[in-house]
Simulated scan of single mutants.
Amino acid sequence: MTVHVVTLFPGFFRGPLDEGILGRAVTEGRVRVDLVDLRPFGEGRHRVTDDYPFGGGAGMVMKPGPVVDAIEHVRRADADTRVVLLTPQGRPFCQEVAREFAGAGSLTLVCGRYEGFDERIRAFCDDEVSVGDYVLMGGEAAAWVVIEATARLIPGVLGDAASPEDESLSAGLLEYPQYTRPREFRGLRVPDVLLSGHHGEIAAWRRRQAVIRTARRRPDLLERADLSGEERELARRVLRGETVDEG
């Protein structure tokens, strides 16, 4: 997979791209990250990329010319890339969107700065996403979230092929509780079922815990989750505040 990142601050990404699982994926060629410095596309001697907004208002706005020139530069080299504007006004980025992006083959993430983009830039993009209902100083942190969440779904990036499917949100539920050694820590014990070696009972316990945890912490996810009738009744009991058997 290829990810082009249009940014005024390419240095933001260079350290993280050398580290951890993603760094290894880049080294192995499973993921290619192309950092496109927006500054050379700026206008005039000073390579200006922003200007005052028409109609007045605080702050500066990203000019259309430099951003669109950078997008077209990428498209000339990679005609099939999907151009994604990172903006608080975009559709919410979630695990489902990450999976969609992982299948795209090539993404171009456009990072904003200042008070936002000239509205006409949107006409040259294919999609818009937001990583949350808060304001960042620029799109670089948002781009990194998209890169991490998407790249880890590319086959071979994670060592265990089952890992992405077992984690929070992959099945529409939060992940079940996880434990490792020691068996007891400061009076807190690992549930006996996890020590039983009975894979069927362990799977059933984990699924039940995922339903309970989601109902308690993120009930908004339950509407789209693929639940059996018994699991939906369990979730309803949790939402009503009833005591349930947690196994």
Rank of each mutant, 00 (worst) to 15 (best):
residue 207 R to T: 06
residue 52 Y to S: 11
residue 116 G to T: 12
residue 8 L to C: 09
residue 214 T to S: 12
residue 54 F to A: 15
residue 221 L to Q: 05
residue 210 A to T: 06
residue 205 W to G: 07
residue 115 E to L: 09
residue 130 S to C: 04
residue 112 G to K: 03
residue 177 P to A: 02
residue 64 P to A: 07
residue 65 G to K: 15
residue 203 A to W: 01
residue 102 A to C: 14
residue 24 R to Y: 06
residue 193 V to T: 12
residue 28 E to D: 15
residue 70 A to P: 00
residue 111 C to Q: 09
residue 241 G to I: 05
residue 147 I to S: 03
residue 241 G to P: 06
residue 1 M to Q: 14
residue 220 D to L: 05
residue 92 P to L: 11
residue 19 E to H: 14
residue 114 Y to Q: 06
residue 206 R to M: 04
residue 105 G to L: 13
residue 157 V to I: 08
residue 137 M to L: 15
residue 235 A to F: 07
residue 113 R to D: 01
residue 231 E to V: 02
residue 130 S to E: 04
residue 240 R to Y: 06
residue 19 E to P: 00
residue 114 Y to R: 08
residue 25 A to N: 11
residue 109 L to P: 00
residue 8 L to F: 12
residue 172 G to L: 13
residue 108 T to H: 13
residue 69 D to C: 01
residue 29 G to E: 13
residue 20 G to M: 03
residue 216 R to E: 14
residue 12 F to N: 02
residue 161 A to H: 10
residue 213 R to K: 15
residue 8 L to M: 14
residue 243 T to F: 00
residue 171 A to W: 00
residue 132 G to I: 06
residue 65 G to M: 11
residue 242 E to T: 09
residue 76 R to P: 01
residue 180 T to K: 05
residue 220 D to Y: 07
residue 210 A to K: 05
residue 186 R to T: 00
residue 129 V to C: 13
residue 186 R to M: 08
residue 180 T to F: 00
residue 68 V to D: 05
residue 235 A to G: 08
residue 149 A to H: 02
residue 4 H to S: 15
residue 212 I to D: 12
residue 91 R to F: 09
residue 135 V to F: 04
residue 192 D to T: 11
residue 132 G to K: 02
residue 138 G to F: 01
residue 160 D to K: 11
residue 205 W to C: 13
residue 240 R to A: 15
residue 74 V to K: 11
residue 180 T to P: 01
residue 118 D to Q: 12
residue 232 R to T: 05
residue 32 R to Y: 05
residue 18 D to E: 15
residue 21 I to S: 01
residue 49 T to K: 04
residue 10 P to S: 02
residue 94 C to A: 15
residue 205 W to E: 09
residue 118 D to G: 10
residue 168 S to T: 03
residue 2 T to I: 12
residue 51 D to M: 00
